[in-house]
Write a protein that binds this DNA or RNA. Structure first.
Lengths: 191, 191
DNA sequence: CATTTATAAGTGAGCGGTCACTCAATTTCA
DNA sequence: TGAAATTGAGTGACCGCTCACTTATAAATG
């Protein structure tokens, strides 16, 4: 790794850690620089603004995750298998870089509006899989967005509670349960 | 309503609306005052700081919701009925004052650490109900926090997506589905 | 090789501007 | 008329960002 790339990476990691610990608005450029062991001005050799740095970090993970989920579900046959593939991939991403994952989770509100409509999107991947399964009558036909939200919530709320420290350990340890639970949500019979 | 109480209520409502629309850190005291049609200084007659105003709003809803959920589930017999009572109560609170609800939902991260341990807590209510049901062998025994998170996620993620505008309409219209889905999550068989 | 030249990377004091908060003066109203 | 409520210009702290300058690295030259 070149020296410049190393500096940039150190800045990103420092920013990420502080953003998760104290929030984006509450983190100063001076703090980021200190944590990365560079001068404040150096930040601006690599990023046009603090806001852009924050957005870069978010979008990179957002797109990466969306691509990975799309790849993961593709080879799986049938909704049940696709769900498990998606859940496994999601949990692995979370466990691999928990700080980045937590940052993405905690800052959706701020950045999601800045995501272009045509950009790969984790939610869309899930939504499409569910939509297909409804068309194929694998599960009852319902409001896709509502059902997708509920299924996604099974995993995402658990991840959120891990951020809060309400429980510990790898998310990947519970892939089977998450997949079963999400499947159960999607399969709820109409009355 | 006395004049002073009216002013305080207007300030709270103005702050709430702005906090939801633009975020707490991004909202200035000048904006709050303007939206409430008072001078900036008036804020400080009723609140010691902007931060305390934000915390007050959060805690009032947090405690109110916790109390309401505890009340709602008490008379219901059996886990299935308790879940439905909790879900219904939660959705009604959301629909009754959506701005306040959205504020609470979007700012958990910032304020949850400031909630005293002994304070009534919406999550604890749900957790305890599930814990009881496990003891009574109504549902499989599992990691309570994990299962509670997943069940709660069914409803909360849907609420979150409503905040994002991914779908519209009252949450209360879907109480039955949420209850069924949460129940399904809790009932997932161990393999 | 040594030496000059060119470019990239890093620095930190300081600037312009914002913002939460204060307070002396003014208005409201019982 | 006196206490309570309100006002808004003013204050000081802070913060993102700039920029003139230094230092490290690489390229060119003879």
């Amino acid at each position: 790794m070149g020296k410049a790339e190393d500096t940039k990476a150190r800045l990103e990691r420092a920013a990420l850690t502080l953003f998760v610990a104290r929030g984006v608005a509450e983190t100063t450029t001076k703090e980021i620089a200190m944590a990365a062991s560079v001068a404040e001005g150096t930040i601006y050799r690599y990023f046009p603004s603090k806001e852009q740095l924050a957005l870069d970090l978010f979008l990179r993970h957002h797109q990466g995750l969306a691509g990975a989920l799309a790849e993961a579900q593709r080879p799986a046959m049938g909704l049940r298998a696709k769900i498990e593939a998606i859940v496994r991939c999601y949990c692995e991403w979370a466990d691999r870089d928990w700080t980045l994952f937590a940052y993405h989770l905690l800052n959706q509100h701020s950045f999601l509006i800045e995501v272009p409509d045509d950009m790969a999107n984790p939610v869309t991947v899930v939504r499409d899989v569910i939509s297909q399964a409804m068309k194929a009558d694998e599960i009852p036909r319902r409001n896709v967005d509502l059902v997708a939200a509920s299924a996604i919530g099974v995993v995402m709320q658990s991840a959120t509670y891990k951020v809060y420290g309400r429980f510990t350990g790898d998310l990947s340890d519970h892939v089977r349960f998450f997949a079963d639970a999400a499947w159960a949500v999607l399969s709820v019979k109409e009355k």
